[in-house]
Nucleic acid binder design. Structure first.
Lengths: 225, 225
DNA sequence: ACGGATGGTAACAATTCCGTAATATTGCGG
DNA sequence: CCGCAATATTACGGAATTGTTACCATCCGT
């Protein structure tokens, strides 16, 4: 049975979410603040649903510490946020948030997200041989990119950068991460180089150039469609 | 032909699996440790069968690095694990394992899993007796190629290269893959040789020479018509 | 053994791609 | 609104990849 840790300082929300998750057959742990959440995380839940705004140790701090601990680093996290404006921050910071939900919570939406997270790890449906982000379709095996259905040639590096971003659609990726993934961890390449390649990618994307967003001080991300 | 990379520190297991996969018509690469496995993975196998417990670089580490590399990220991985207790970890960690097998290995089960993986990714493996790509028609049984309806003789190697590309119409194929498929995995032939044969093929294709596209840094592909 | 066809290699030319630096521009904090 | 740091853009030289040609080895049938 899958265990989910629900963290929110609002008791009503915790109870509501807990009730519905249990009804779906999940084992539910709860915490009312960041400190307790971190303790509960030692029980290795399969997923953490985490409020951003909490007194003392807030949601971001919790994630940072979860990711810093090898044991808990791979637990996926779904953020709960009251303000739509926080969404950008949630996704922008390279924190490893797997998804987010804006309050007030829609229970069906919550359950859908939770199921989606677990489905991702279900070996039975793991194969994506092509990635679609809006009007852009990436086919790694064919080394081919379709923009508005039109095949467009991408040189190797540009292809790999876009693919890496697409595989992490909506998540911010630092230049350093990109350099490691695309260029390799041993090569020594100035990080400004990434900018140039991103520029070329944007150029090829044409009207969709806005897909690749710059997140100042962090890196780039592919805007989810 | 599909290529499978088998990784295990136990020689007996590698040999057993290799033997049975080859009998099924798969091309098999092997590695006895994680480091070698990662090197072999550059040859872009269609599937990796990977032991969890290995000295030095273990199975999880191998997967983590495969997934971190854009080039190899989409290669499906089947884990081999000795302990049932490891199964939970295999499935729990978000590592991209497509499936798993518990030792001792049941050969029929192994083959079933492997076939399942490939069936998923290769839906229409219809056994066609001739392939048509635009104005080019290839009849493997007759060892015959028609261009604009005109029979044209292709020497063996050129024929096989074109056939291999045609069977994967639209897909990029690396020189290394071509060498393995057409020349065989044990022969040592310089990869520039492929260029020369492609040049000869283009020459014979005449006005249709553009069918064979170069993808710099990757290889060649037959443009779908 | 000869001639032709095939295949492999090397050398060089042509092209594309990449990385960097220099410069312009943007966007954020104050 | 200003200044500063981060990012965008541009241009260019060099590196890497590929195209092309020529040449040699081998095989095969005669």
């Amino acid at each position: 049975m899958q265990t989910i840790l629900v963290v929110d300082d609002d008791k009503d929300i915790v109870d509501l979410v807990k009730y519905n998750l249990q009804k779906e057959g999940f084992n539910v742990l709860t915490a009312r603040n960041g400190t307790t959440a971190l303790e509960q995380a030692n029980q290795m839940p399969d997923l953490v649903i985490l409020d951003v705004m909490m007194p003392e140790v807030n949601g971001w701090e919790v994630v940072k510490r979860l990711k810093a601990n090898v044991k808990t680093a791979s637990i996926p996290v779904v953020f709960l946020t009251a303000k739509a404006s926080e969404v950008d921050e949630v996704l922008g910071l390279e924190l490893g948030a797997d998804d987010y939900l804006v309050k007030p919570i829609s229970i069906p939406k919550l359950l859908a997200r939770v199921r989606a997270i677990f489905r991702k790890r279900d070996p039975a449906q793991a194969d994506r041989d092509h990635i679609i982000v809006g009007a852009v379709e990436i086919l790694p095996a064919e080394h081919l990119i379709r923009i508005d259905g039109k095949e467009t040639f991408f040189p190797k590096k540009e292809f790999e950068v876009l693919l890496y971003l697409a595989e992490r659609e909506g998540r911010a990726v630092s230049r350093e991460t990109l350099l490691n993934a695309v260029w390799g961890s041993d090569t020594h390449v100035v990080d400004r180089t990434v900018d140039v390649h991103v520029a070329k990618i944007r150029d090829k994307l044409g009207v969709h150039s806005g897909y690749v967003e710059t997140i100042k001080g962090v890196g780039y991300r592919l805007r989810p469609q």
